[in-house]
Nucleic acid binder design. Structure first.
Length: 270
DNA sequence: TATAGTGTTATCGG
DNA sequence: ACCGATAACACTAT
């Protein structure tokens, strides 16, 4: 579920619904999600404080806390989402918005919970448990955010190194926020073969990739997430290119399942 | 029952 | 130490 657009929505939910509410209790007992902290560490650091701001860079989000408290970092992993319950307890302000539905009250996979003094809650709901919650996360290691990155910063990412250009697009140290679906969309829009070595990407290809990244990230933010991307529904067996109707090809690039157009995205450089 | 999965990171070889 | 490739991680949905 979460790539940059989904995380931005989660951030906006926290900003809208969770700031300024004093923390009464914290459930940080999931030692896998909350590693490397020990159970109770995050609780001790946050009880009595409130969240004062919600930030995001790429797929990472974090909150400032009152009274010179630590930064609370949250990563949604593969399947995480933020759910914020109002003071009444049963009104959910976050959830499956991006999937076009709201499922209130499904707390089965709450891996981390802030309980506010008003009785409401903020939860990381994450079935696969690959999400992360930690204090003072090292966000400075992330590259520029994919939604606002400049061409000057984007070019070296897609034209340097011998790794496949798709792997470079998804390297969070170079550009933050592009995941598997966005990467396939960007490469498809730019008509670039995903397995092309980055150092063989031509300048025109790099320019198309930058424009496509802008368009894909901006479009997904505007339209409701990565599932609204043009290629999303065609990444499946029997899928055909929305442009020319040619069969979509499936392979593995950068360790991830990759789909590309068999005629528009060819292996030859240029 | 077997497999794939929208992400990150430890580990290993070059 | 850097770069790149791979496996592992945990668990559900199909």
């Amino acid at each position: 579920m979460p790539e940059l657009p989904e995380v931005e929505f989660a951030r906006s939910v926290v900003e809208r619904a969770a700031l300024g509410r004093k923390v009464a209790d914290v459930d940080d007992s999931d030692t896998y999600v909350c590693r490397p902290h020990r159970p109770g560490d995050i609780r001790a650091a946050l009880v009595g404080r409130d969240l004062t701001a919600a930030h995001r860079r790429g797929k990472s989000m974090w909150c400032d806390t009152s009274g010179d408290g630590p930064v609370l970092g949250i990563h949604l992993g593969m399947s995480g989402k933020i759910v914020v319950a109002s003071a009444g307890g049963d009104e959910i302000d976050g959830g499956d918005y991006w999937e076009g539905r709201r499922v209130a009250g499904d707390y089965r996979w709450a891996r981390f919970t802030l309980t506010f003094v008003d009785g409401g809650r903020l939860m990381l709901v994450d079935p696969r448990r690959l999400g992360r919650v930690r204090l003072d996360p090292p966000v400075e290691k992330l590259g520029p955010d994919a939604a606002t990155i400049t061409e000057a910063a984007f070019f070296p990412a897609v034209t340097g190194g011998t790794a496949p250009v798709k792997a470079r697009l998804m390297d969070q140290h170079l550009v933050a926020g592009i995941g598997n679906l966005l990467a396939d969309e960007i490469l498809w829009q730019a008509k670039v073969y995903p397995g092309l070595r980055a150092d063989r990407v031509t300048r025109p290809q790099a320019k198309r990739l930058f424009a496509a990244a802008r368009e894909a990230v901006g479009g997904a933010l505007r339209d409701g997430g990565v599932h609204t991307l043009a290629l999303a529904e065609h990444r499946r067996p029997g899928g055909r290119c929305p442009n020319d109707g040619a069969p979509m090809v499936r392979g593995t690039v950068g360790g991830r399942t990759t789909w590309w157009c068999s005629t528009e995205q060819v292996a030859t450089p240029g």
